[in-house]
Design a protein around this nucleic acid. Structure first.
Lengths: 141, 141
DNA sequence: ACGATCTGTAATTGATATGATTACAGTATC
DNA sequence: GATACTGTAATCATATCAATTACAGATCGT
């Protein structure tokens, strides 16, 4: 799995946790434990997909622009990690003179596409709001 | 996804395709399009898990020792790619003085464990025998 | 017994991917 | 116009991945 997915989810949960729903890349980076540039890169993508508003300049930062309950992990997965399941490496070769060797690549690819859909269905059931609830529940325990 | 998973599946399908169910690491490597050492490493693991028999020495090689219909991709996934879904990179820090930052790691981990189970359920439905059928079907098309 | 053939494994190398850092242009606020 | 942000490119260090080389151990055929 793409680690940008983790950063995106963490960031959105943090924004949902904030009373005003806002934070700068520096604040988010400190909370996520990474550097601000990486956060900005991920958040820039989330802005293009309509999950956050960004304001440049002094007093700016990022703001969640959807209700936490209506944003699912599947939305985020699709935005910046879709298809990451299939390995870059591919076996076989279509030019090969063997039923197995020449067709395995295509068949394997179909298997991974199915796995991707399966994963997406799972992520569909988890919202940013739920993630925030789970995090709070840990604290009480 | 681990590319060793791909090699393992491809190799087992090739063995299932062979009339005598046998092949050497060199033959498999040529079909998979990789080198024999990598194949042997993967097959060595499959032997330990009881999917293939190996015979060293002249005339040796690997032999499928289960019926293709009873070996699922989930078996192979568990054998050499389980838990590969969670990214090595981990956000947050348990020592942190913030509900979100300190607990996100654990919550995220639980999410990925669930995703792993989901993936395993999907792979449970696909057997080596089915993979061989799919490959053959491509040829006819 | 001996040479040929095969697996099992460790070690090395080169290529690619990943994450941190630096740098700086653009923009909004005070 | 000084300050405080985002947006993005470029660079560097490190980790991971895959290929290759090397060689010990096992088995077969003769």
């Amino acid at each position: 799995m793409n680690s940008e997915f983790v950063i995106a989810v963490h960031s959105l949960v943090l924004l949902a946790y904030r009373p005003d729903g806002m934070a700068t890349s520096e604040e988010i980076a400190a909370n996520v434990c990474t550097n601000p540039v990486r956060v900005r890169k991920v958040m820039s993508c989330l802005r293009k997909c309509g999950f956050v508003d960004t304001r440049e300049g002094a007093g700016g930062g990022y703001k969640l622009c959807r209700r936490p309950e209506e944003v699912t992990l599947a939305d985020i997965y699709r935005a910046l990690a879709a298809g990451s399941l299939a390995p870059s490496w591919c076996s076989g070769n279509p030019e090969m003179n063997c039923v197995v060797g020449s067709n395995m690549g295509e068949v394997m690819n179909a298997v991974f596409c199915g796995a991707d859909r399966q994963l997406e269905m799972y992520f569909e059931q988890i919202t940013i709001g739920q993630m925030l609830s789970r995090v709070k529940a840990k604290q009480e325990a």
